[in-house]
Design a protein around this nucleic acid. Structure first.
Length: 609
RNA sequence: GCGCUCAUAGCUCAGCUGGAUAGAGCAUCGCUUUCCUAAAGCGAAGGUCGCAGGUUCGAAUCCUGCUGGGCGCGCCA
């Protein structure tokens, strides 16, 4: 049983297609949409005109014919052919009421997925010895939100924090620190970060890289970068390389130090993730080191399938439609990130049995993921062991920009750390809450410092997350804290506040049971109900298209619809007890939907604001 | 050089496999409230949908070319 009116209409139209045109037309999409203008009814069917073209018929005549046979008895009040061949649908009040009653259940109209394969979501992507920065913010909160959406529709989600915890950079940092005699037990994350930055300069590459870069006419800054690195490629690099070899061979001292670096990094990471209210912990860590013993067999798989080819001493996988190959083994016999990523694909599809692999990684790695997915397909890891096709998806999110429209930096030009950003957001949220609590009519008036502080944190963090998730993911966005924490406009705090006001309204009513019959009379009640009924479809849409901003836009629309309703329809003061009960039930249902929707975005809702 | 991506109101952005008059928020201006938290509401103004062609009943949306910005381009991740 479906609760989405759009689907009910679609099904009825398809049945009509089938009976008037023949069974081969039963799957044509009727393109049912919400009407943009009330004079066109509640829903409009747009698909007739396209179908008329295909079957070379007059669109209006076809529309009339469809209206004649369509079965929406008791559901639709009127079906009108309009314009060049639209059909406008107005629902009956009794249908709306019935749908509301169905929706008013714990599921809130969100259907459970039929596909029960697990899903892997690659998110966060911490590098050991590196502080979190804004780039991690997006990956983490987008990945967390998508995870919540999938869990909401009943899927098992593996949140994969693919730590950068193995390889030359780490070995180099470790080597440097251990040689300098620093006590690894008392190391701070900033010490570690500094050591990483220093080590990075000498950690990379040799002359071969430059030659190759020139040969393929790589961009000038890439060559410059390699030259800079090369200038520093000294004895330190040799030392780091031998440290890496020793680490890979299981040297006890190095392994101990390595674990300390990880602990030091993750302690800081978890502090930020906690503050962010993100469901991500040690149980989600499956970093590069996890795959270290599987790399050889990855390469073997490609060699056995004749997909690997030697080039300049390295092993590459080639693709038919492009020159750029994927390098899976270096000329010195070592492995690199692509091999690790392939091992992770194998693990996720073949061992965990996931049929959907989602990578929340910034847009700059587009090419890499295209190669990774194509290589995985070539070698046959695009099917789970039970033969189900695997969907590979990269969410190439854009950058966070500063006011100058360049990647966000501090005034001194360094990267903005995530913790400093979150601290500021929380401070802004707290200031706002405290300011508002001074107003005697405010629900938060007279609250203690600690309680206000908690609410402020929820607002500040919610503001950042909502601002991030409400944009189309692929575009860059400008970080503007003032706008984010505002209680007006399409912001997190606006929706949180709307919700808090409904909570307050319900409390004031003195009721605890909200199960009166629905009565839908006014246009505002009708509009609120029609908006509410979309919830299940909106959640499905996000799960399908991986676009949380659709949910954000819709939540904003819902609060708008509630606002209009609230403005026009007295709830507590209406004389008629039956209407009062209905309006309270509508309010309560709206509140639950907002709380549920914000939870899917990973945003908390204060009871009072 | 090759490739990817973006371009919509003053600003920040929506626009759902092509659909009716391109929408919202902010900012600006005007009007309204003895009323459940003014989270205001209503109205006005604001657009060559980067440019030029093409496909068709119909294009911000699809195709081609161009301009401009961002990003990427084998032994780093």
């Amino acid at each position: 049983m479906t609760k989405d009116p759009k689907q009910i209409i679609s099904d009825a139209v398809q049945a009509a297609f089938s009976s008037t045109l023949g069974a081969e037309y039963k799957d044509v999409n009727p393109v049912v949409r919400l009407s943009q203008n009330p004079k066109f009814g509640d829903y409009q069917i747009n698909g007739i005109m396209g179908l008329a073209k295909k079957t070379s018929q007059n669109p209006r005549e076809l529309a009339e014919k469809i209206v004649g046979v369509i079965d929406l008895e008791g559901f639709a009040e009127s079906l009108e052919v309009a314009g060049p061949g639209f059909i406008n649908v107005t629902l009956t009040p009794s249908a709306l009421i019935e749908l509301c009653v169905e929706m008013d259940s714990p599921s809130l109209g969100v259907l459970q997925s039929e596909d029960l394969h697990p899903i892997a979501i690659d998110l966060c992507g911490v590098n050991v010895a590196k502080q979190l920065h804004v780039g991690h913010l997006r990956s983490t909160i987008i990945g967390d939100s998508l995870s919540r959406v999938f869990e909401r529709v009943g899927r098992t989600v593996y949140r994969e924090n693919h730590l950068g915890d193995w390889g030359l950079p780490i070995a180099m940092v470790l080597d440097r620190l251990m040689r300098s005699g620093v006590n690894l037990d008392t190391l701070s994350i900033t010490d570690l970060n500094t050591a990483y930055q220093e080590a990075k300069l000498v950690a990379k590459d040799d002359c071969g890289g430059i030659k190759t870069a020139e040969r393929i006419s790589a961009g000038p800054h890439r060559i410059l970068e390699l030259q800079e690195q090369n200038a520093d490629a000294t004895a330190a690099q040799e030392s780091a390389k031998s440290a890496l070899v020793k680490l890979q061979q299981g040297d006890k001292d190095l392994l101990l130090g390595w674990e300390k670096l990880i602990n030091c990094t993750m302690k800081d990471v978890y502090a930020s993730l906690d503050l962010l209210h993100v469901k991500l912990g040690p149980e989600h860590n499956r970093g590069e080191s996890f795959y270290r013993d599987r790399l050889e067999s990855v390469v073997d798989s490609f060699v056995k399938s004749n997909l690997a080819e030697e080039d300049d001493g390295a092993l590459v996988v080639r693709f038919k439609d492009r020159k750029r190959p994927l390098l899976i083994r270096k000329s010195d016999g070592g492995f690199m990130y692509a091999t690790t990523d392939l091992a992770a694909v194998y693990f996720r599809t073949q061992e965990l049995g996931c049929d959907r692999l989602i990578y929340v990684v910034d847009a700059r790695q587009r090419d890499h993921f295209k190669d990774l997915f194509d290589a995985s397909t070539l070698v046959g890891w695009n099917k789970t062991p039970d033969g189900t096709s695997v969907k590979f998806e990269h969410i190439p999110f854009g950058s966070v920009l500063g006011e100058d429209k360049k990647p966000l930096k501090t005034r001194s030009g360094s990267n903005v750390t995530l913790s400093s950003l979150l601290d500021e957001a929380v401070a802004r949220g707290r200031d706002e809450v405290k300011r508002r609590s001074k107003d005697e009519s405010s629900q938060t008036h007279g609250m203690g410092e600690e309680e206000l502080s908690t609410i402020g944190r929820q607002i500040g963090i919610g503001a950042i997350k909502y601002a991030d998730l409400s944009n189309d993911l692929v575009t860059d966005y400008v970080f503007d804290m003032d706008r984010m924490v505002s209680f007006e406009g399409n912001t997190g705090p606006y929706i949180q506040y709307a919700c808090a006001r409904i909570t307050s309204l319900l409390e004031k009513s003195g009721e605890t049971d909200f199960s009166s019959n629905f009565i839908i009379n006014t246009p505002q009640e009708r509009q609120l109900v029609i908006t509410l009924l979309q919830y299940g479809a909106v959640v499905q849409n996000v799960a399908q298209n991986l676009e949380p901003h659709i949910l954000c836009m819709w939540l904003h629309e819902l609060t708008g619809a509630f606002s209009s309703f609230y403005q026009a329809c007295p709830v507590l003061k209406v004389d008629d007890g039956a209407i009062r009960g209905s309006r309270l039930r509508l309010s309560e249902l709206t509140r639950r939907v907002i709380v549920d929707g914000l939870d899917l975005l990973g945003i908390e809702v204060p009871q009072k604001m």
